[in-house]
Nucleic acid binder design. Structure first.
Length: 114
DNA sequence: TAGGTGACGCAGT
DNA sequence: GACTGCGCCACCT
């Protein structure tokens, strides 16, 4: 299914990211698939980089790459800020990588299938 | 107006 | 099983 009401690709990405529960994370690829743009995972990452421009701001720190690495921590201004935010939500992060990534992984399809 | 960039993911070797 | 290269498409300069 596709989300309607959101004309811009970026906003569609933000819509999904905003649905991520606290203490959970997801991957760019998962979001891309949810939007029907499986091959455009890069676009999701690019959208996240500009997430700070979104209104209201999206929890971009809950989005990581497919292996659970905080690839975009730099976009937060501080290399440790992203990790701090995740740990604050109960997500364990070691060496810029999420521990038990599979356990805290949240599939966007879960909401879309509503 | 046109080109380059980019928080990734997958297939092939 | 692990590593490298290519594709993808919207936004920014």
């Amino acid at each position: 299914m596709e989300i309607k009401g959101t004309a811009n690709f970026f906003e569609r990405v933000y819509e999904i990211v905003r649905q991520i529960p606290e203490g959970r994370v997801t991957s760019y690829g998962a979001i891309a698939r949810s939007l029907g743009a499986a091959g455009s995972s890069r676009m999701v990452g690019y959208a996240m980089r500009a997430a700070h421009r979104a209104n209201p701001p999206v929890p971009a720190h809950r989005v990581v790459n497919r292996i659970g690495v905080l690839s975009g921590k730099m976009a937060f201004g501080s290399s440790t800020l992203m990790q701090q935010l995740l740990e604050n939500e109960g997500v364990e992060v070691v060496d810029d990588r999420i521990v038990n990534f599979r356990a805290v992984f949240w599939d966007p399809q879960e909401v879309i299938s509503l």
